[in-house]
Write a protein that binds this DNA or RNA. Structure first.
Length: 162
DNA sequence: GCCAACGTTGGC
DNA sequence: GCCAACGTTGGC
């Protein structure tokens, strides 16, 4: 199983918004970066666990755990002229942009803020902490995933057995 | 609001 | 294919 960190601006779509969705699931649309598209297409699998990350907000950090619940599939917003994610160059017969469905999985007992992530040598390689990192989806090592779960006050083994 | 970093665009 | 200009991201 792979692990992922998905950024979202909470003013636009927060972890609580995800939790309130029907089936607590949301299509992760609007990805318009090829590297992230390729992660979704080639590496993400249903059952993968990851974190929701709040960015561009007063308190950036991780509120909890999400699960990837679909294979990659075409992102309809790329073809919708009314969508803010509309891509006029998209071809309906050859969808270039993809999405996966993402489900709420668990709240952290404690919110793990960005400065706390930076404190730990175990997380030094975390892509999200790299200066200038702009990818909205980044992979995590299993050890990093488990470590951050513990910072959040939950047992990663409890997630695996489900 | 500032600014560093990086992806994309487009002229050549 | 190069690369400068431009736009966006995101922490501070």
């Amino acid at each position: 199983m792979r692990h992922w960190l998905l950024k979202s601006e909470p003013d636009t779509f927060s972890f609580d918004d995800l939790k309130r969705r029907p089936k607590r699931t949301e299509p992760w649309n609007g990805v318009r970066n090829y590297q992230v598209r390729n992660f979704m297409r080639d590496d993400m699998k249903p059952g993968d666990l990851g974190f929701f990350y709040h960015s561009s907000c007063p308190e950036p950090g991780i509120p909890g755990v999400i699960e990837i619940v679909s294979e990659a599939r075409p992102d309809p917003s790329a073809l919708d002229p009314k969508s803010e994610y509309f891509d006029p160059k998209s071809d309906p017969d050859n969808p270039g942009w993809l999405l996966v469905d993402v489900a709420w999985r668990a709240d952290f007992e404690r919110f793990v803020a960005l400065p706390e992530l930076r404190e730990h040598p175990e997380l030094a390689e975390l892509l999200i902490l790299r200066r200038g990192n702009r990818l909205s989806v980044t992979p995590l090592e299993t050890a990093e995933f488990q470590f951050i779960c513990q910072l959040g006050g939950i047992d990663p083994k409890g997630l695996a057995s489900d």
